[in-house]
């Protein structure tokens, strides 16, 4: 295959909070990239997946074989975060000065913040730290846009559209569409493709 990778393996971390749909997003991206002839290794933690915990998926994209399903510290090329604080949390362990991040701006309050034991930091603070820990960060209103489209879960697709638009990985609209139709069938395609396009537009602008 003649697909060029900027890094090999290319290390992508998808993060969020249990119940936000990270696992679906990582599998969809895995399928799109596999269809390009790439090797994709995905590491996931399931325990907290529905129970309010921090959830991460590690994607390793390579021309050549399987890699460790855990990315080494400081080796993330891209962080796709469905939750701002989780983006920060991931970068603290896996970031490096060249890392990039696409971050949904909608916070999910940790239990300690709901209970009043801790405070969720202000959006500007989080943005400032994200800026310091990455070479480039895009903070996008994925959940807000998803709610306009009708369901919060579209935020995942918006994030994938944004990731595609950055252009590091060979994720085309057609490739996404081809995989989506396998798992969803034709009925729900229009809304999902709309979400994908809106995500891409958030990077372009």
């Amino acid at each position: 295959m003649a697909v060029e990778l900027k890094h090999d393996p290319y290390n992508l971390i998808i993060t969020g909070v249990g119940g936000q749909g990270n696992v679906l997003a990582s599998r969809m991206l895995g399928a799109v990239l596999t269809a390009q002839g790439l090797w994709v290794t995905i590491g996931e933690t399931f325990g907290a997946s529905q129970r309010g915990g921090s959830v991460m998926s590690h994607l390793r994209v390579s021309q050549d074989g399987s890699w460790s399903p855990q990315i080494p510290q400081g080796r993330a090329h891209m962080v796709l975060a469905l939750e701002p604080l989780e983006a920060l949390r991931v970068l603290e362990t896996y970031g490096n000065p060249q890392s990039m991040a696409i971050v949904n701006d909608r916070p999910v309050m940790p239990y300690a913040a709901i209970a009043g034991h801790a405070e969720y930091p202000a959006a500007e603070e989080v943005a400032k730290w994200l800026g310091e820990l990455t070479a480039q960060t895009w903070i996008i209103p994925a959940t807000e846009t998803a709610l306009e489209l009708g369901l919060p879960i579209y935020a995942n697709v918006i994030m994938m559209g944004a990731l595609a638009a950055v252009g590091d990985l060979p994720i085309s609209r057609e490739g996404f569409e081809a995989e989506l139709i396998k798992s969803l069938g034709p009925a729900k395609m229009a809304r999902n493709l709309d979400a994908f396009d809106q995500g891409a537009a958030m990077i372009a602008s």
Partner: peptide, 24 residues
Amino acid sequence: ERPAGYAAKVASAAQATDTPRELA
């Protein structure tokens, strides 16, 4: 694993994330 300067930035950002997400 990464340049020393980065570790200092991480330490400062860690103030924001010192509360783990308790499973509930």
